[in-house]
């Protein structure tokens, strides 16, 4: 049975961030990327696996990724790797995401604090 998909309202920009982060370490093809996201997020983040490709193609078109066809064990696949522009974009996205999560965390912790005082 496929895992439950993550609430799409919270997913805006997240696949892009995760893909860039993964590809910063190594070049990968689509299936590998999806499995890595699933493994490294303990399946907390799960989307329809096929929708990763439009994100990859858009990132490639924007110059954040580059692709090349590679044949391994007789199977030809398209491997993606990050470009210098992609690394720059990743740095910006990571910074925005960190600010956002710390702000949300502050709100949540602040809420608990108010409850504790009452």
């Amino acid at each position: 049975m496929p895992p439950r998909e993550t609430n799409p309202n919270f997913m805006n920009g997240v696949p892009e961030l995760l893909i860039l982060r993964l590809l910063q370490q190594d070049e990968m093809y689509g299936y590998e990327i999806v499995q890595s996201i699933r493994t490294r997020t303990d399946s907390v983040i799960a989307v329809g696996e096929g929708v990763v490709y439009p994100v990859l193609h858009a990132l490639e078109r924007d110059g954040a990724l580059q692709s090349r066809r590679k044949t391994i064990n007789g199977r030809s696949r398209i491997y993606y790797s990050i470009t210098a522009g992609g690394s720059h974009r990743l740095a910006g996205l990571s910074e925005s995401w960190s600010s956002l999560t710390s702000a949300i965390q502050k709100m949540l912790v602040g809420g608990q604090h108010v409850q504790a005082v009452q």
Binding site: M1, P2, V47, G48, G50, V51
Partner: peptide, 17 residues
Amino acid sequence: SAAFARLGDPDDLAQAM
């Protein structure tokens, strides 16, 4: 069947593009 389910709903696959 499982592979199709994991790949995603056809509507989502189309909408993503």
